[in-house]
Design a protein around this nucleic acid. Structure first.
Lengths: 206, 206
DNA sequence: CTAATTTCGAACTATTTAGTTATATATTGG
DNA sequence: CCAATATATAACTAAATAGTTCGAAATTAG
């Protein structure tokens, strides 16, 4: 009863659907939304033009799907970097390093689909998704801060919400700079500095 | 001898060149580079199509000109916000508030041509310009920090370069969030928090 | 008023692009 | 082998787009 992958009737596809969506995400990441033509997608995904329309719908629909897949994958990796057992300082640094590394990978487009290209897409559903994703990222960092408070790594009055949002903003800044061509080495150094910054204690009250 | 604006021969233009470039910048800002068609520019700039080509060249050339004009105007305002006589804390906050306000102006596109759209343009000259502009912004903040050290507002070992770069990154983050539709009120609050953050003293050495 | 100059407006051409259709091909099930 | 199904390849259509051309209009100079 494990043979649930019975081949469906009809000519088999000569591409993998999940893989094709991943490729679409990379195409959008490197050319932006408006810069991508259907021909770019047909060529880059290895899917015939009629199949593309039949299976993935139009460009907008495909973009949304690629965006969701990208965000899910990236979110999982980011959570792993942030939540693996380590000191708080190292968690935050690992989180930012991961952002820098994916944004400066050799042989792939610079930048990030979520940070650099999706915000420019003029579409309500995309905007809504981005807002949710951003909220999720902040909440993840915030929860890491709270764990640190519980573990006694941070004082209980540490401003978790503010600092979490600031860490994400600093990560966005690093990613934007990656997109602009700043070298990885510089950005990795700045990632460490950013992790230090958001952990600075508030000055003692008067 | 002040009549140096002698009318040139030929039919006079019925648009102002500087004003048209400004309008072009707003069109690019609201639709991105690839999203803008020549027809968009013709309609939005109030310039006839053949005149547009004759006077401004093709889309890429016009974009570069619009970008330079936008950056110059924005840079001047940012410098004014940053360098007007006030406390350091208020200078930084004013700088970030200004970024938030222009990125969330009613009746105009959200975001920023420099932060949100130009980095996605796949063009060496644009990239080079952006790098210079970013360097300039950091240098401006850095020099404000140095003034503050001279004025005794900051300790002489304050890490001016690192914190200046971080302030710009935080500003980029705020601008990206503006583009994503976050309300001005929230962003203005976060601008204040960001100004406070980059001024936190380093912990006393052991 | 005439000639020269420059812009304007509209139309035109060639190219690119989105989306569809038609036919051939590969597979399952009987 | 035959019918049914799903995909692949290529060609097609209609629309959008970039860039140009051409005659009319507005101005200066003589």
């Amino acid at each position: 009863m494990f043979q649930n992958a019975a081949r469906p009737p009809g000519r088999p596809r000569n591409f993998d659907e999940v893989d094709a969506v991943e490729k679409a995400a990379q195409i959008f990441r490197s050319k932006g939304y408006d810069g991508v033509t259907i021909d770019d997608l047909v060529a880059g995904m290895g899917v015939g033009r009629p199949s593309l329309y039949a299976i993935f719908g139009d460009k907008r629909t495909l973009f949304l799907r690629a965006l969701r897949a990208y965000a899910e994958a990236k979110g999982a990796l980011a959570a792993k970097a942030l939540l693996s057992p380590r000191t708080l300082r190292d968690s935050l640094a690992a989180f930012l390093r991961h952002a820098v590394e994916t944004a400066t990978e050799k042989g792939s487009a610079r930048g990030c689909l979520l940070v650099c290209v999706a915000p420019l897409v003029d579409d309500a559903e995309v905007r809504q998704f981005l807002q949710k994703a951003a909220e999720g990222a902040v909440a993840l960092v915030e929860s890491r801060f709270r764990d640190a408070i519980t573990a006694g790594e941070l004082p209980s009055d540490f401003p978790v919400a503010v600092r979490a949002s600031q860490l994400i903003d600093l990560g966005r800044g690093l990613t934007m700079r990656a997109q602009m061509g700043m070298p990885r080495k510089t950005l990795l150094r700045d990632a460490e500095e950013a992790a230090d910054l958001v952990l600075l204690p508030r000055p003692a009250r008067a």
